[in-house]
Computed example of a mutant assay.
Amino acid sequence: MLDQDEWRPLRDAHERRVDALTEPYLRRRERGVRHPVEDFLFEYYSHRPARLRRWHPGAGTVLLGPEAAERAGWRWHRTVPATGRGGAEATGVTLDVPAFLADRGRTVEFVAELLTATAGRTGHFGCFGLHEWAMVYRLPPEEVRHAALPLRLGAAGTDAVVEAHQIRCSHFDAYRFFTPPARPRNQLRPERSRQAELEQPGCLHANMDLYKWAYKLEPAVPGDLVADCFELARDVRVLDMRASPYDLSGYGHPPVRIETPEGKAEYVAAQRGFAQRARPLRERLLAVCRRLLATAGR
């Protein structure tokens, strides 16, 4: 139970943090300027900057004070009798967990299953980011997703890299963008129905997706955890594109040349670092899911 002078600084700090993270994107959007690395976080992921900015304390916390009363009309919130400082009676606002689970219970169960399965596996660190290469393999130039960016090695050189490697992509939402000629080259056949079976903690996209699972479970997930997952996704995205076949030097991103032994070593080291960063975030998200499900006796 938090009085207004306790929770408002938390909210204000969260808003300042998110403003710093999203301001460059919002400025570019006003000018109609696109960015091939950073826009992904706001286009592929559907969470708007304004929603990311909205702070939530998470399930089980009651907020007191006049400003908290404004939240009573928010979806999945309810008022509860509370005791303020000095024993004074007050009205608090908190997440209505039964109402939230009535609408989002299946999502909570799915996320809990997925995160549990992922956390229980050993990370695989031999993919070298070849999923981005497979997305342009034997593709006509006009169909390349980032057509405004040159391919570092050209179309033929990019195809040669794909053909010289074994591809082992376990993430469905990366694999589904493979070109038709690239799909048979993947050692695995990811499907949406097999996501919990295949997801593993070394995968860059699985770790980026912690942001997706965090915001899909708002407001049950605390705002600081959502922002932590966003920052991880932002940093992983940079590596994802630096290791891609595109030339991003014009955006200040030197390539990770995964076609070379040195580039592979650089990629794996960074990939392991992100897996370590993702582990406690995955554990915190899983703890939120388990508390919610325990409330409902599931």
Rank of each mutant, 00 (worst) to 15 (best):
D3K: 04
D3G: 06
Q4W: 04
Q4F: 03
R16M: 11
A20Q: 14
A20G: 14
E23Y: 07
R28W: 03
E30M: 04
R31T: 00
V33M: 06
P36L: 06
E38T: 15
F40E: 13
L41S: 02
F42D: 04
Y44R: 14
P49L: 03
W55D: 00
H56Y: 11
P57T: 02
P57N: 03
A59V: 04
G60R: 03
G60H: 05
G60P: 02
T61H: 08
E67K: 09
E67V: 06
G73R: 14
R75L: 12
R75S: 07
H77S: 08
V80E: 14
V80A: 13
R85Y: 04
G86F: 03
G86E: 05
G86M: 05
D96A: 08
P98W: 08
A99Y: 07
A102P: 10
D103E: 15
T107H: 10
T107I: 06
V108T: 05
V108Q: 01
E109D: 08
V111L: 07
V111R: 00
A112G: 13
E113W: 06
L115H: 01
T116L: 07
T116V: 05
A119V: 03
H131N: 10
H131V: 09
E132A: 09
L139E: 13
E142Q: 12
E143S: 07
R145S: 07
L151P: 02
L153D: 05
G154V: 06
G157K: 09
G157I: 10
A160N: 10
V162Q: 01
E163H: 14
A164T: 15
H165P: 01
F178A: 09
F178I: 11
P180C: 04
P181M: 09
A182H: 03
R185I: 06
P190C: 14
E191H: 11
R192A: 08
R192W: 04
E197A: 13
L198Q: 03
L198T: 02
E199S: 11
C203S: 03
C203P: 00
L204N: 15
H205I: 13
M208N: 03
W213V: 07
Y215R: 12
P219Y: 04
A220L: 02
G223D: 00
C229R: 01
F230N: 04
E231M: 10
A233R: 02
A233W: 01
D235G: 13
V238A: 12
P245C: 05
Y251Q: 10
H253P: 02
H253C: 10
E259C: 02
G263E: 04
A265L: 15
V268G: 04
Q271T: 08
Q271S: 10
R272H: 12
G273C: 11
F274K: 04
A278Q: 01
P280F: 09
R282P: 05
R282V: 05
L285W: 01
V288L: 12
C289Q: 11
L292K: 02
T295Q: 15
G297F: 08
R298M: 04
